[in-house]
């Protein structure tokens, strides 16, 4: 049955080459922990991706309850946390996942750096990877405000003051992020929500696609 459906689609779209590009390749010995246990360091990139998938899925479920508005944001999070079945678990996954993804991407970055895997010809993939790192930090920063509790509000105020201290364009950047040069309020919350849920994930997906296509084209760097 499945193979008939596959053949039907393949006849029209010729998907077998795509399948080859995604799945049909060899894993070299030096990255396979089954052969060399120390090769577990190659897992960090994959685990980063795995946690990002957890973040995307748990985040999608969080938006089913979350209300990005200063009157209701906190109440909706509190309701989700205390009343909704498994709400605490889903929010917990998103909250702790944010920390775990930072740890994993940090370890992945150190692995690539200390193995010199960013050397020619993989310079561009390193640059894309660091941009992904910035994206994830931005997601962490914008997501921190969304529960609209005291911790969120005051940490964001400090963050925006840091943005404001940039010479010449600081106030403009702060206004862009917060919606107002002075007030951290309703506008700030909706903007951070938009950045956290639409802008940064869009950038994240594009950069991840480029990151993975480049890995598939160039292959994993050889053993040291």
């Amino acid at each position: 049955m499945i193979s008939k459906i596959y053949d039907w689609i393949d006849e029209r779209l010729d998907i077998t080459p795509m399948w080859r590009d995604i799945a049909d390749h060899e894993v070299p010995e030096h990255v396979n922990p089954a052969h060399h246990f120390s090769a577990f360091v190659y897992c960090f990139g994959g685990l980063t991706f795995f946690v990002v998938v957890i973040q995307v899925l748990s985040g999608m479920f969080l938006t089913m309850y979350y209300v990005p508005d200063i009157e209701n944001a906190f109440q909706s999070v509190k309701y989700l946390q205390s009343q909704v079945a498994h709400g605490q678990l889903v929010r917990g996954m998103h909250h702790w996942g944010a920390s775990v993804v930072i740890v994993m991407i940090f370890l992945h970055t150190l692995r690539v750096f200390f193995q010199g895997a960013y050397k020619k010809p993989r310079e561009l993939n390193w640059v894309v990877g660091v941009l992904l790192f910035f994206c994830i930090l931005g997601l962490g920063f914008t997501g921190y405000l969304l529960p609209w509790d005291n911790k969120a509000f005051f940490a964001t105020q400090v963050g925006l003051e840091i943005a404001e201290s940039i010479p010449f364009i600081g106030t403009e950047i702060k206004t862009l992020l917060a919606g107002d040069p002075e007030i951290v309020g309703a506008q700030t919350l909706t903007r951070f929500f938009a950045i956290h849920v639409f802008f940064l994930p869009a950038a994240l997906f594009v950069l991840m696609a480029i990151h993975f296509i480049m890995i598939r084209r160039q292959g994993i760097s050889g053993p040291l």
């Binding site: 200063i70 906190f74 109440q75 999070v77 509190k78 946390q81 605490q88 678990l89 929010r91 917990g92 996954m93 998103h94 909250h95 702790w96 944010a98 920390s99 930072i102 930090l137 962490g140 920063f141 921190y144 529960p147 609209w148 509790d149 005291n150 911790k151 969120a152 509000f153 005051f154 940490a155 105020q157 400090v158 963050g159 951290v184 309020g185």
Partner: peptide, 27 residues
């Protein structure tokens, strides 16, 4: 996740002048 419920503080109060801000650990 099950062992450590995610924290939530009291609702944001911009007039709370005594609050000491603290970012998430990675900042």
């Amino acid at each position: 996740v099950a062992a450590a419920p995610s924290p939530l503080e009291q609702q944001a109060d911009p007039n709370n002048a005594a609050y000491i801000p603290l970012p998430d650990w990675y900042f």
